[in-house]
Design a protein around this nucleic acid. Structure first.
Lengths: 218, 218
DNA sequence: GGCTTCACGGTGACTAAGTCACACGGGATC
DNA sequence: GATCCCGTGTGACTTAGTCACCGTGAAGCC
């Protein structure tokens, strides 16, 4: 009598007896654009995302925002985990980018899983490792890499097969951690070089190879 | 028959039987200025620092460096831990700022501790939480805060009771994540305002309150 | 249809930060 | 005393971020 389906396969590494117990946890539905956590919030449960996408952002006092990482199905939101365990407050802001389905693991079960399941421990640690890696990457980009390169990278990463990137300049500015005007000017420069075409609310990539070169520049 | 003394008190939260087992691990001595890990290195042991100080840095391709965090006695180097567990490679660079004494916990014992000791698990998670917090802080500073404020903050943080900060401009640049010239110019500006006095290899703080105001600026 | 409203984006002018090249001087070393 | 190197100062230039303001297209409202 499974409570939910593990499409993302995060139960795979778990011992059978624990698998059953986890399946008994009720999944939760969250509508798009819900703010899941704000800075200073204190999480009560360990969360595993089953479907949808969560964006975690950092906001500066000047109002500028920066995307720290995204949580995708089969992953957990580390900061929540830290809240459950260490009592550290939440410093980022989590936003439901789509409708979500998630499993909430209550602290008591979480403790028992950590104590009893090597598979679960590895899952949790891999999640930590991945997030720490994400943060290091963002930090390196923000601290050392030029806007033009980051922008080229971001565009390529988010382009559909037709080369369309459905994001506003403001969206891109948040992903990269800069100001909207800077993005506008960079995109205009790229357009005048024939690399992309600007449309309202979207950018179309015309010359992938050239953009890749720009992104990889040493 | 204790193998070493737990000055930093990190054994405090551990169950007695595990305490003994940990004490049996041989401490290791590392001389100052040793590079402990480079990007891509793969750690074999879980490390707990008993005395000394480790600095963990990120290096950009342009050669600029950025201090991510420091490891002090009683703490562990998270990235090492991740290496032991998740197999994630090391992306920062760790340098012994002083002579070190550290305990190396072999993977097998680490696994047994994680499985058997709630106290140990909490120690590990608190370490993770602290590091993640450190990284978030640095990220926020680098992404959103002006150099002048960061510099004022860094100076206050590192000043002795006499107001002396024994660091070169280059050192400060690494701490803040900017270029040496930028630091030189900022310090000169601060000096001309009477906030500090520049000396060779050091800065003397003359007006703490004013510097605090500068650091706190909204 | 005509009107309002608002998100999206363009622009100029200015400040802050980063880069590059090079110059100066004090200590240490030989 | 000559040399070397580290720490620092400086000018000129590029890139990025900020502020204020404008135009325009799209959605909604009357």
């Amino acid at each position: 009598m499974a409570g939910w389906v593990d499409d993302a396969g995060f139960l795979a590494g778990l011992e059978p007896q624990w698998r059953e117990e986890l399946r008994a946890c009720k999944p939760v539905l969250v509508p798009v654009r819900t703010t899941l956590f704000r800075p200073g919030d204190h999480a009560q449960s360990f969360v595993v995302l089953l479907s949808g996408k969560i964006g975690v952002y950092l906001t500066g006092r000047n109002g500028r925002e920066l995307l720290l990482y995204s949580v995708t199905p089969g992953e957990t939101c580390v900061q929540t985990t830290l809240g459950v365990l260490g009592g550290a407050p939440y410093s980022g802001e989590a936003l439901a980018e789509t409708d979500l389905v998630a499993v909430l693991v209550p602290p008591a079960l979480f403790e028992r899983l950590m104590a009893g399941s090597a598979g679960f421990r590895h899952f949790v640690f891999k999640a930590f490792a991945a997030r720490l890696g994400d943060l290091m990457f963002v930090l390196e980009q923000v601290a050392f890499v030029k806007v033009e390169q980051r922008l080229a990278h971001a565009l390529l990463e988010r382009a559909g097969p037709d080369g369309l990137v459905s994001m506003t300049h403001h969206d891109l500015a948040v992903v990269i951690g800069t100001a909207r005007e800077v993005i506008s000017r960079r995109l205009e420069a790229m357009q005048s070089k024939g690399l992309i075409a600007n449309e309202r609310g979207a950018i179309r990539i015309l010359d992938r190879p050239a953009l890749s070169r720009m992104a990889a520049q040493d």
